[in-house]
Design a protein around this nucleic acid. Structure first.
Lengths: 221, 221
DNA sequence: CCACCCGTTACGGATATCCGTAACACCCTT
DNA sequence: AAGGGTGTTACGGATATCCGTAACGGGTGG
């Protein structure tokens, strides 16, 4: 088991729960921070003192308050950490269950585990920690299909155009007519529906509104 | 009539049309640019040469290409121009018909006229120019209700929360249930529908998807 | 050649939305 | 107390969406 672990999480109670868990698992030094910047500074200092952390468990969303932060989100923190301290193990522990987000964390930022906060969150977190200790990755079952390469994850130009037209206020019917006129294929209402359905599943969106909101946040449109 | 006018517009054909119109109106010196940065530089130079432009007619959206621009949009250009050359008359000529955007241009950036590109666009532009020559403002009929102070334009916290919930994928029905549980008033589906309808009109949105896309662009949520 | 897969299209039913009308409660004015 | 205005709620019909099923056609491999 690791000897020195940092918890970055703004909700105090959750922080506490994870702390207890780590104690039970036999971690000797457990430090906690409630701001991303503090996490970075603490890790940086430990490194300079030759007493580095072996692992960090971080949330993704930190409520903003009066303190202005260099790293506004867990994403930003994690990204920076993995670049500067590649050896440091990173577990993200978040309510977020958007596949795209999880995918990015693994593929771009190379985190070691992703655990969804849920009823069985702490149980999964335990498993995750044990896996990471053994040098493996871990993915919560809620988002386990984020990485299986079988399902087609690519969003092509057609999809982007479709989402863009949606966001401009066109109804699916209108998009269909437009595509027929401009010879963009597939143009049938049916196919457009099917494509949007696929995108909704891919992005874990409840409905078209949610879908557009998500892809706008991701900067796809 | 003005003697020296600049046209900033990336579509060459429209540029031409406006040029012709200005010629007919008796403007002597008509210059054209297709990039925001060129517009700024040209106006700046004319100022330094003591041969300033009296008016600029600018589009809002300029398609991005290889040339990187300091001023990416007409908004940015107009904002800068009105700050640096308060005397310069500014007419915005754009397809954009979002009331909020028009409102901002008038109230914050103090443009002199706003003309919507449409079938009667050039006609309205003529009127606009004549009004501006006489020191008046002008607003295309399509967006004329952008400024009449009678209609309530404020978007309150309830509206923001509503839009935020929408963007999170909740259906109006679900939002209604949620509000009833959390004692947020009004909570009825009917009231939520009515409120969203008001917002759609305010933001010139075709449907809920469009509405969420717009307010996300505006940074309201 | 035939069976099979896959992408497009069509259709139908369940939900959700859009939009107008109207009832009701509440406050404010006269 | 009566009337008018406003905001909340209810309801109904027209559209739009969501979602499953299925037909059709063009490859591809056996």
């Amino acid at each position: 088991m690791f000897k020195k672990v940092l918890i970055a999480e703004d909700m105090e109670d959750i922080n506490k729960g994870v702390h207890t868990l780590l104690t039970e698992l036999g971690v000797l030094i457990i430090d906690q921070v409630q701001y991303c910047d503090d996490a970075y500074l603490k890790i940086k200092k430990a490194e300079l003192d030759f007493e580095p952390y072996e692992m960090v468990i971080s949330d993704l969303s930190f409520k903003a308050d009066h303190r202005s932060q260099t790293y506004a989100s867990g994403q930003a923190l994690v990204e920076k950490l993995k670049v500067e301290f590649p050896v440091l193990k990173v577990i993200v522990y978040s309510v977020e269950d958007r596949l795209q987000a999880v995918r990015t964390l693994f593929n771009q930022h190379h985190i070691d585990a992703y655990v969804c906060k849920s009823r069985s969150g702490l149980k999964n977190l335990t498993t995750a920690i044990n896996e990471v200790v053994n040098g493996n990755n871990f993915l919560s079952p809620e988002v386990s299909n984020a990485l299986n390469s079988t399902n087609e994850l690519e969003v092509d130009d057609y999809d982007i155009l479709l989402l863009d037209n949606l966001s401009k206020g066109l109804s699916q019917e209108e998009i269909s007519s437009l595509y027929k006129k401009e010879n963009i294929s597939p143009a049938s209402l049916s196919s457009i529906e099917k494509r949007l359905n696929k995108l909704r599943i891919q992005f874990n969106a409840n409905n078209a509104i949610h879908l557009v909101a998500i892809v706008k946040d991701l900067g796809l449109i």
